[in-house]
Design a protein around this nucleic acid. Structure first.
Lengths: 130, 130
DNA sequence: CCTTGACCTTCCCGTAAGGGGAAGCCCCAT
DNA sequence: ATGGGGCTTCCCCTTACGGGAAGGTCAAGG
């Protein structure tokens, strides 16, 4: 099947599939006589794997390692778990940073009347308290 | 003062200051005879404003609007508050997305023994349940 | 006066993960 | 054979800068 069909069946875009190929995530697809990329069911399975991992927020680099483990019948589940825990730690870091910003902005917004007058604690904070 | 001093006093990098200039966030700095950018105390105040806003996660585009309001003596605090609330909504969206990923990955990781054996629910999930 | 070294300038490339779109083949049906 | 999709590669765009090259400027010291 062609890339359009592969995209539809995997839930990825054709652009993304080509990108994964150039990024070395998937090995170059075979080509038809006319130069079209050709995909088989095994490829679709791998593309769906990638899609699910992307949905879970895994980076391309980590997905590369997940795929390596997936293909390695002798893998240790500990290695997979380690990747997942690293990913969680990264997410936690991002959430913490966002939550800190959120509460700071929230406090400023709460202190702001939000009326037609120009006086605003938000701007006063940004101006600097020093 | 030169850009290095301005950077030090504002807490920004010289690169960032030049970037804000090309991005139209700040008006082009005056130049010395030798072509160096020259900054005054007012500029430092604005740069610190930008830095604080960046620390709070505001995008360049929103900071542009914040600066417009800051300079507008006749502004309504409601407009500033609106920008802040928009920002909070954006942060909330990101946090929600990250939290959803986190809990999904967490569940998979919890279900994984993490031993030397190859069997792993994480990979089974990524493979697709269908 | 000259040199050194720190500082500054512009310019270009790189980031993550693709999206958008152009120019040009390929393929199938009519 | 022709029309219209689908496919190809290629290049630019995104965020908010960081890194580094090539070269100009400035102040201090010999």
């Amino acid at each position: 099947m062609n890339i359009g069909q592969a995209a539809e069946r995997s839930g990825l875009s054709a652009k993304a599939i080509r990108y994964y190929e150039t990024a070395g995530l998937v090995s170059p697809a075979g080509r038809s006589d006319g130069g079209y990329r050709v995909y088989h069911l095994d490829d679709i399975r791998m593309l769906r794997f990638i899609r699910r991992a992307r949905d879970l927020g895994f980076s391309i680099e980590r997905i590369r390692r997940l795929l390596d483990l997936w293909r390695d019948a002798g893998r240790a589940s500990a290695d997979v778990k380690h990747l997942a825990l690293d990913h969680i730690a990264e997410i936690d870091g991002k959430i913490a940073a966002l939550a800190a910003m959120r509460s700071a902005v929230r406090e400023l917004a709460d202190a702001c009347d939000g009326d037609h007058r120009p006086d605003c604690p938000i701007l006063r904070d940004l101006e600097g308290l020093t």
